[in-house]
Design a protein around this nucleic acid. Structure first.
Length: 310
DNA sequence: TGCGAAATAT
DNA sequence: TATATTTCGC
């Protein structure tokens, strides 16, 4: 919808060779103001790259820092601009791609740096997909659970599409080990749970997953641990028929369990975000630390190393 | 809105 | 060619 309208009727304008003011939509105006803003900003703020690096401040472990550092293949400084006003890390997603056919230098805007799926990033992706269940893993949820700054739903959707094709291909090849052509995907083993599990096989499992965000460093047992706020990821319906009954009850339960795990010398946590706890509708609990998964029979003492050992 | 397959771009 | 990104129907 145009924001403005010519006062001169079209016929009249044509008759007198009046070139009408072009229609400007809200999008046009918004874009123009973004252009202006970012032009101003690139002059005063000279370190978009630092900004980018700063986006990953939330990550504290060496591994995570590597993850963050390597996530983007940054080409040149000119390719990066902050479109929105926020300078604090949270908003890489506001880097916009704008039409590249800009002959007008004032409309030249950068495109988002191309995402490179490093083995670390892919590993994280696979972990999350495994937790969700390969059937119920969708881009948005995966993106949220991966909790990697700057990662977009589109990035994930693309990767997921490719990964599904890969899985299909692998399934077709049954257990023919070696050479496919995909080094990235081959670099991270396909979790055994993908082959079918009671947690997601019938489409009713894997309802909730607690996950970490906003990590804050905290000393623990000599190495760095992270405490965090807890969020609940919920998928699918029916929270009424289960034992805990409410989201807050799940959160409480998650807190309880994770606190015990952290205090438990048997668990060699590198960082607390390695811990995930999943609940299914029967209030069964599955606990995952890194690449290991356990079934938890309510009491931690009963924990046995169950299946997956990658 | 957002998913997924297909098309397209790099 | 591989794969990232965009498009488009649902």
């Amino acid at each position: 919808m145009p924001l403005s309208q010519s006062l001169v009727p079209t016929e009249l304008a044509t008759a007198f060779s009046i070139t009408p003011e072009p229609y400007r939509t809200m999008t046009d105006v918004t874009r123009a103001s973004q252009d202006t803003l970012s032009n101003l900003r690139t002059q005063s703020v000279k370190q978009p790259l630092n900004k980018l690096n700063g986006l990953f401040n939330g990550f504290k472990s060496v591994e995570d820092e590597k993850l963050g550092d390597e996530i983007f293949d940054i080409e040149t400084e000119e390719n990066v601009e902050i479109v929105d006003g926020t300078v604090d890390g949270s908003d890489l997603r506001k880097l916009r791609r704008v039409d590249s056919g800009g002959d007008d230098s004032s409309t030249r805007m950068s495109k988002r740096p191309r995402l490179v799926w490093t083995p670390q990033l892919h590993k994280r992706f696979v972990e999350v997909v495994a937790h969700l269940g390969v059937k119920s893993a969708v881009p948005k949820t995966i993106m949220q659970l991966m909790n990697v700054e700057g990662l977009t739903r589109e990035n994930v959707a693309s990767h997921l599409q490719k990964y599904r094709l890969y899985l299909k291909r692998m399934q077709g090849l049954s257990n023919e080990g070696p050479s496919s052509s995909d080094h990235l995907f081959d670099s991270t083993p396909v979790p055994q749970s993908f082959q079918e599990s009671s947690w997601n096989g019938n489409g009713t499992g894997a309802i909730a997953m607690a996950y970490a965000s906003q990590m804050v460093p905290m000393p623990y047992h000599g190495f760095e641990m992270h405490s965090h706020q807890f969020n609940m990821m919920m998928q699918q319906r029916d929270w009424s028929g289960n034992k805990f009954g409410s989201v807050s009850a799940y959160q409480q339960r998650y807190q309880d369990i994770s606190n015990q795990v952290i205090a438990d010398e048997r668990f060699d946590l590198q960082k607390k975000s390695d811990l995930s706890i999943l609940f299914n509708p029967d209030s069964q609990i599955k606990m995952c630390i890194g690449w290991k998964e356990w079934s938890v029979d309510q009491k931690l003492e009963d924990i046995e190393v169950r299946v997956f050992d990658y």
